[in-house]
Design a protein around this nucleic acid. Structure first.
Lengths: 129, 129
DNA sequence: TCGCTGTATCGACGAACGTCAAAGCAAGAG
DNA sequence: CTCTTGCTTTGACGTTCGTCGATACAGCGA
């Protein structure tokens, strides 16, 4: 399990001019879409939030499972999706498995949207709308 | 068509403490997930980027369709998904329909991830673990 | 008016997704 | 070693999604 079992190891690492700066090539779009798709489920969004907001910055599955109406395997599945998207990493310590959010990956996704939201290609409606 | 035909009109408007600050309630998770899901497709990501990066901040469907291997109806479908997610808005001017990215919606999604990526719940891995 | 071009909706198909129960593996307790 | 607990994997089911062709609508020009 270690870090990421998936494919995007470096996908979010070598990131990307902001959305509005240049058209975003097909290949990069595929990798970024995989990350956003991982965020595109309420359960995963809550899991990620729960992990990121947990004291110490990490949470074990047992901490996180309470408050969900989902079966154990489903939780595990969602955590795997987040892991393979490079958004969290998991580590087994004794009996329990601890997950932790990846600040870098989240930050890069944030940057991708941020600049688009504030700066580039300045919509002429500057102050309006 | 006007602005958003969909459901999230205000969903992204009244946004949200950052991901790592507090656990993100179920209801809000559903609405945010809808936005991220809209970003979770390579074609839509490229479309959004193409629109956002287009000179003037807006692009008509014809501008955007070139360079895609997708049929017309499919492009139209993806634009509709982005529109219903509140990420773009469309306006018909004569024969053509022009789309424009919504900086506010993108910015709020960005903020949601940004703080999580930099600040809160500071992972103590610095010294501990 | 008719026809043409640009865009959207409809209906259908295959693929991917979210979910669960059952079974499997890892680690500690007895 | 065996049992129990925590988590993951497997296999299956129904639903949603991405894609397309056919069709319909909107606006312009002849």
């Amino acid at each position: 399990m270690s870090n990421q079992s998936g494919s995007l190891a470096g996908a979010l690492a070598a990131c990307c001019s902001p959305l509005a700066e240049e058209p975003l090539g097909p290949a990069r779009a595929v990798e970024l879409a995989r990350a956003f798709k991982a965020l595109g489920d309420p359960a995963r969004l809550r899991l990620l939030s729960l992990i990121a907001s947990h004291p110490g910055g990490e949470a074990c599955v047992c901490d996180v499972s309470d408050g969900f109406d989902l079966a154990g395997p489903t939780i595990s599945h969602h955590l795997k999706v987040l892991r393979e998207a490079g958004l969290i990493s998991g580590e087994r310590r004794g009996t329990w498995v601890y997950y932790r959010a990846d600040p870098g990956a989240l930050g890069r996704l944030s940057d991708l949207l941020a600049i688009a939201g504030s700066g580039a290609a300045q919509p002429p409606e500057a102050a309006s709308a």
